[in-house]
């Protein structure tokens, strides 16, 4: 059984994960879920953030795993190779995901760190196109990558591979613009399952709330919902907000399309948008501004006034003075 699971996950890590992303991406575009928001600048940001960091981060992780770790931990290679598969998965899952929770949370709560994570939040849409959208400095210092690489060196390679597959699938589905969790909230019979699901893993409803452009409408909550694979970190630390709804608008309320190079590599390159958080003279954190109608991803439906049905015909009488 465990071998079968390992095989499935190995396939998922190989071609399966790429196929999942591709299929989701195609579906999102087919259903028009980007709603013409994927303009030229946003395309450049998403594509540059998807490709360029890989050219730097992968060799860096390889160097760290093959040269740095053996040098600083000589004789510890496979030292914990005896750890049973199940417990190896539990150790890796907690170590990796809890570290990412903290890395993510600190970038939201510590003001000087915000601009390194801002690129991921500037998209006014959700989906496969923006899932890898990160500033390169944020990606390079992704702390859990190095912790997990160290655990792989210590002998937890196979559990790491399995956790990576599961985590990749959950975070991809949480970023997707396809609200696959909707039926869990719609049908009463599924409510108990929904209760468990939304407290265990990141779902579109909870993660989309984290990407909302506003936080005071009872749905959006960019001040919390930091969990990546597991949502229970937010539950434990009191940073969770569950509404079972999807935000009206995504992104940053005062975003005006900073250039792709500034979003990819701030502070090496600065934005030319005056007053932007990424501009040379920009503020560290800018206050929210009221949302404009064009920023709404889900505009309020205009309700037709209901014509009152009069039961009886009124006979109007002139008012006597």
């Amino acid at each position: 059984m465990i071998d079968q699971i390992k095989q499935i996950i190995e396939n998922l890590n190989g071609y399966g994960f790429s196929v999942l992303v591709l299929v989701l991406g195609v579906l999102e575009f087919s259903f028009g879920l980007y709603k013409k928001r994927w303009n030229k600048n946003e395309k450049w940001v998403d594509i540059a953030c998807f490709t360029i960091p890989k050219l730097i981060v992968r060799p860096l992780v390889a160097y760290y795993s093959l040269l740095v770790l053996p040098a600083i931990l000589p004789g510890f290679k496979n030292f914990f190779g005896w750890v049973p598969f199940f417990w190896g998965c539990a150790i890796i899952a907690v170590a990796d995901d809890l570290t990412q929770y903290w890395y993510h949370r600190l970038h939201h709560q510590v003001p000087w760190l915000w601009r390194f994570h801002r690129t991921h939040h500037s998209a006014s849409y959700m989906g496969m196109a923006m899932a890898s959208r990160q500033n390169i400095i944020y990606t390079i210092f992704f702390s859990q990558t190095y912790l997990t690489a160290a655990l792989v060196y210590l002998g937890l390679g196979i559990p790491a591979l399995v956790v990576k597959g599961i985590k990749g699938t959950i975070t991809t589905l949480a970023h997707s613009s396809i609200p696959w969790d909707k039926p869990f909230y719609k049908y009463k019979i599924l409510h108990p399952l929904a209760w468990v699901l939304e407290r265990t893993i990141s779902t579109p409803a909870t993660h989309h709330a984290h990407h909302a452009a506003t936080t005071d409408d009872g749905v959006g909550y960019y001040k919390g919902n930091f969990g990546n694979m597991f949502f229970w970190w937010d539950i434990i630390f009191g940073t969770a907000h569950i509404s079972r709804q999807y935000p009206k608008a995504y992104g940053i309320s005062h975003y005006e399309g900073d250039q792709w190079y500034a979003q990819l590599a701030w502070p090496l390159f600065k934005s030319k948008v005056p007053g932007s958080e990424l501009a040379a003279d920009g503020p560290m954190v800018k206050d929210d501004v009221p949302l404009q109608p064009h920023q709404l991803y889900r505009p309020d439906k205009i309700q037709e006034p209901v014509a009152e049905q009069a039961d009886t015909a009124f006979q109007l009488q002139p008012v006597k003075a």
Partner: peptide, 30 residues
């Protein structure tokens, strides 16, 4: 812009709890 004192306190409190959470699977395994 500075980190708010209440946020700082919350971060320290939660980070301490995190140390226990990191150890939890190892403790359960043993």
């Amino acid at each position: 812009m500075k980190l708010e004192q209440s946020t700082k306190t919350q971060i320290i409190k939660n980070a301490s709890l995190s140390l226990l959470l990191y150890i939890l699977p190892i403790a359960l395994m043993f």
